[in-house]
Design a protein around this nucleic acid. Structure first.
Lengths: 214, 214
DNA sequence: GATTAGGCTATTGTATACAAATTGCGACGG
DNA sequence: CCGTCGCAATTTGTATACAATAGCCTAATC
């Protein structure tokens, strides 16, 4: 997207995720425009995007408020994500070529490097994990699916999940990626889908766990 | 949505669906603004919406073109719809109350009335069918799911499907609705999901059939 | 003749002014 | 004291002007 629009999007999103705007807070276009230093036009576009991602909700008279996500919302989000990513993995299994398979292997090798040390490199894990999943979604070759997943996979959620993972869980994640690669190599859609379902659902339960001890 | 924005949306959509703008045709905001008699601002909003529904595609430099849907795209659309509506039916089965159940029964009774005569009332069937499915989606109580399905269930597709249905298939559709109602009454999520999957996939194969003889 | 650099044109992005609509407050009447 | 009507202020919707940018055409040079 464009510059001003992106800036407004990032700023409003930050506002919500940082808790500066609590659920139920009314959002007015002009206030957000002032805040993010752009005019109302790009703010409106950013708000439409945030609305489609359910960060904000709109009343019947088009007024916007910060949305309220409860644990059921997160559960539903993970359930939908598991369904759709499993479907993507299944499609990818029947479509993958040698190059994409090599890319996945290389990506997972980098993940293994990031999680093997006693102090895992979590930022590197996150970036590479995202890349790994992106390859699969691209290989699935379904623009619809890609669009839906983009609105469903929130990076803050992934980050919190990773924060709950200890070294053992991070390594297990890499191991599951390895099994996905095997399923892809075998062209086995059902296997790939099943592994992906487990992979996401395990992430869900980590996400739902209490704050880890420091 | 708002008036001008809706008008632009409807006009551009009509243009594409009627075949006046073939796949690959470039779409410029000003031309569409002139065409629909509104300014570029609401046209831009309409285009964002059409883009999210994949009627139009955007190049890296933000230029828009009419999208090209092949049979694979339709197949994927029905697959996703079957997955998501089955999930919705499953959620609805565990959440439905007496009122919604009564509404579903009343709705399906009206569908039966519409499809029973020798000359079925297809427009009435379409309207009531939509209402029936909307009740289920509302009962599923998942805004995310509702938003995704809204972008997935294109009325022209439903219309074409219905056009392929003869009197027997229309009646069978009403019968499947009846079985869904039974599954809801039993609170059986798996049953409801399975029936819905079959219901949608049957629609897919009708949709894919050749033009019916006149 | 092909290729590349330059500028011109078409198109999208942003800001702002104005119009429409909705909400909330306050005054008035019951 | 409660309700209702209406006005004013706030907010969203639309139009338009201007800015930035990408694409294309031309021309000049190798």
């Amino acid at each position: 997207m464009s510059k001003a629009s992106d800036r407004a999007y990032a700023e409003i999103r930050r506002l919500i995720l940082a808790g500066d705007a609590l659920p139920g807070t009314p959002l007015t276009e002009s206030a957000l425009a002032d805040l993010s230093g752009v005019s109302r036009t790009p703010v409106r576009e950013a708000l439409r995007r945030l609305e489609s991602e359910l960060y904000v909700v709109r009343t019947s008279s088009q007024r916007l408020f910060v949305a309220d996500w409860d644990s059921d919302d997160y559960a539903e989000m993970f359930t939908l994500r598991a369904m759709l990513e499993a479907h993507a993995a299944g499609r990818a299994a029947t479509r993958i070529d040698a190059k994409a398979l090599a890319d996945l292997r290389a990506s997972n090798d980098r993940i293994i490097v990031a999680v093997t040390p006693d102090m895992p490199d979590v930022p590197a894990f996150l970036a590479e994990n995202r890349h790994f999943h992106d390859i699969i979604i691209a290989t699935a070759a379904s623009p619809r699916l890609a669009a839906m997943l983009a609105a469903l996979v929130e990076q803050p959620v992934v980050r919190r999940t990773a924060a709950r993972y200890g070294r053992a869980e991070l390594r297990r994640s890499a191991h599951e990626h390895g099994e996905l690669i095997q399923a892809f190599a075998a062209g086995d859609a059902a296997w790939a889908g099943a592994v992906m379902t487990g992979h996401i659902r395990r992430a869900f339960h980590a996400f739902s766990a209490a704050e880890p001890a420091k």
